[in-house]
Write a protein that binds this DNA or RNA. Structure first.
Lengths: 172, 172
DNA sequence: TGGAATATCATGGGTATTTATGGGAGTCAA
DNA sequence: TTGACTCCCATAAATACCCATGATATTCCA
């Protein structure tokens, strides 16, 4: 039995899943959309077959990642508090800034169907302005789901801002 | 090398049950309300088929979790005391002492009926201002039951506070 | 090396199950 | 009896599960 040294830090042995590149997929009449196969295989190590998603607090997009990420957050929080004998937070949830708790509240569990699709809840789709197409954008440890038109503009602006900042130098 | 002693920490191997997302369900004439299926399956590993609930000490909502969580709390508290927790408490001056005991006292066991519903005791419903609808809010290791109108306002304020704090980056 | 056989993927649609919800019949106690 | 509560059943809607297809990409082998 491998020795695990997680009781102090609450850090898990879960490998870092990496989401890279962008894909544009269709959203069908039932609200289903295929999660890019590359993303699914990045999530392959997780037991829960699906993703966690919530509306971005700062942009018109959907944030998403594996269930393992959220479990890590919750476990870390619980262990930290109880190990310190701090029952108050575990029971009342006060001393925290509310971030983890809020994320739990506004997140949705989106399980894969047999074909690796998820159903976009109406609320999320609406928040991102998604109707019949969705752009998946890899952001390393997480990914985003945009309405294609909106993402294009957003992306162009992002590049433009970078270019302006790097004027004279090389554009990355 | 430190050997992990479960008896010391009181930590259980119970997996972190994660309550995620929010659901709004009806409360019928008999005071029954369906616990979201996702929450029930999160509790699936527990022997006791039902939830533990108590009025929040700080807000107008009902706090709830599985029996396993309460057992964990009691066990940790016991371990703490046996390990000289009184001593620790005297030194650190933690005021958690009465909390766990109080929670035990004011908690209700709400068993599921055949359809996965619980009956909201009048006192709890009243405390939360719940009449004919109830919003279940996942908070990771526990969940809350709110009156929908009240939760909406509370939630909006919560998100607004977070948004204000975020510099425009991503949350997690 | 060229091209056929094979595998993977995104997509569509049909069907079976589950879930939330309502109501009725039986039980127990005051 | 009157409630309060537990089972049990019914149903509409939401969801999960199943199979089919075309488009790419990959492998294999003569």
């Amino acid at each position: 039995m491998p020795v695990r040294r997680r009781e102090k830090t609450g850090k898990s042995d879960r490998p870092v899943t990496s989401f890279i590149s962008t894909y544009e997929n269709k959203v069908d009449r039932k609200g289903r959309v295929s999660v890019p196969a590359a993303y699914r295989s990045a999530l392959g190590t997780e037991t829960y077959q699906g993703v966690i998603a919530y509306p971005s607090l700062t942009e018109g997009t959907i944030e998403a990642f594996g269930r393992g990420m959220l479990d890590d957050l919750n476990r870390r929080k619980l262990d930290q508090t109880l190990d310190g004998g701090d029952f108050t937070q575990a029971l009342v949830g006060k001393s925290d800034d509310g971030l983890v708790e809020t994320i739990n509240a506004i997140s949705s569990e989106l399980p894969f169907d047999g074909e690796g699709r998820i159903i976009l809840p109406a609320k999320l789709a609406e928040h991102a302005g998604i109707t019949d197409r969705a752009t998946f954008v890899g952001r390393g440890t997480r990914f985003q789901i945009w309405a294609p038109e909106i993402y294009e503009k957003h992306q162009a602006a992002e590049v433009e801002a970078l270019r302006a900042r790097l004027s004279g130098g090389t554009v990355v």
